[in-house]
Amino acid sequence: MNLERLVQVDRRIVYLLIALGTLIPILKPIGFAVSTTPPVENFFAKVESLGGDDAVLVSFDYGPTTAPECDPMAEAVLRHCFTRGIKVVVVALFPLGGVTMAGEALEKIVPQYPDLVEGEDYVFLGYKDGAQATMKQMGVAFSGVFPSDQEGTPLDELPLMTQVLNYANIALVVSIATNVIGEWWANLVNAQFGTPVAVGCTAVSAPKYYAFLDSGQMLGLLGGLKGASEYEQLLIDRYPALEPIYSKAGEYNAMKGMDAQTVDHAIIMLFILYGNGVYFLIRRREKREARLEQ
């Protein structure tokens, strides 16, 4: 058998298999079970402990480039807050699309809660440049950095913002983040103002965020699509009325995404096993040939 040929798999075959492994579960969802983990359970439990008198600051710290991971997190957290009647202050600190993602998420979620009143139950303050400077200033006064909301309404005309003046009136900061902005909420806002922080981050950033989680600077963490799917599962388990939203055909969510994710991971693992198997066969053959030559 020519082992060298077995190693040289055309990369386009790998691409094709990954494409099929992604596409088939999207068109025909499999419905793999989602098991939950403590970082997500703690995040969920914190939101669950809040009520109508509390305000949560949700910061959109990601753009369209990571939307498939972050959108489901943001939507699940907003649904959870609105279902519990928690007041929500929405901001965006990521320059390349944060404010657009926030606007689209609100546009999608708010109509599902017809009783919500903008300005009373939630506010959308928009984007502000200079993330850390903005975070610090919000600790003094939201109005100092956001003089008006996204539509230009002055903050003192928004009933919610007359009660939520700074972090002292915020029960939880939720940052849905790509890259480092989520870290800044922990090492700046949590460290200097003591505000509880929970983060939903892209999978690429997740390993670093675990350090903040284990040091207690974040109370919960949603790591990538898996974390988002766990949150969705917890949400459905606690509020079965939300189940139709998540099982609606053609509607993307993290649980459906995890089907494709699982199949793709299996394909990648099979290729890793295949590559290593062939490598060990070649090495064994070389050793045997070396022994014969001796």
Binding site: I18, A19, T22, L23, I26, L27, T65, T66, A67, P68, E69, T202, A203, V204, A206, P207, G223, G224, L225, K226, G250, Y252, G257, A260, Q261, D264, H265, I268
Partner: peptide
Amino acid sequence: AAFGYTVMGRISLLIGRMNYLFID
């Protein structure tokens, strides 16, 4: 662990694009 998470992140982006092309 970092590599595993990176793979998950990149596959998620592919899922997003496939979903866009074949569903949206």
